[in-house]
Amino acid sequence: MGALIDVLERSSGAAPADVMETLLLCALLGLVLGQLIAWAYVLTHTGLSYSRSFTQSLVLLTLVVSLVMLVIGNNIITAFGLIGALAIIRFRNVLKDTKDMVFVFLSLVVGMAIGSGKYLTAGVGTITIIIVMLYLHVTSFGTKSKIDGHVSFVVSHGGGDDDCYAGAFRRFCRVFKVVSVRQTGTAGVSEYVIEVRLRDLDRSRELVDSLMGIPEVTNVALVMNNKLSEV
């Protein structure tokens, strides 16, 4: 163990404490600014092509590139080496996801750090970025949708209460919002689509049953969002 620490200390060039402090500062500042950029992206994004994976890549790229710059330093030869290696990998593989590219980039940089003798940077950088990756995964960072699913049903207004379904939603949903009301051809019959955020995901069936128990409500359907609906 002592010999391993000696090797790491010798490889760092500078004092290990300085290297650790620089790496920690890069990681924290990268996380702060990367996350800020990602949030700005989420807030300003419009259109249908939103990707959570891309948003997470924005955070990871900030960290990976800061590691790249630590490894390259002032060495122009290493910089050209990085570009060359990345070009070879990119043009021999089809990277469909931005996150895949980040992983390729990370492997490349860690390999370069090891090859150029910066073992401490390689080790600490890898562990730090993996921790951030896990954090982004656990928190589902970049998830734009806050709803659990959509409930559609038909209400027949036989001179009764228009808001007859609201009680069931108040019991089972934390948030519910009518997103669509469509009048069918038959007079007094409306088709509702409501997005819901459930109080208990395991009791979604009870919401459907409760709505079915209302005489004016028919054709109840609950469509839950799953994780794959937002990649």
Partner: peptide, 22 residues
Amino acid sequence: VNETPIKTPMKQRLREFAGTPL
């Protein structure tokens, strides 16, 4: 219809906390 809100289980609360608040 019974309108009394049901309780949100702890597991779901933690999962939700692990989203944006965390």
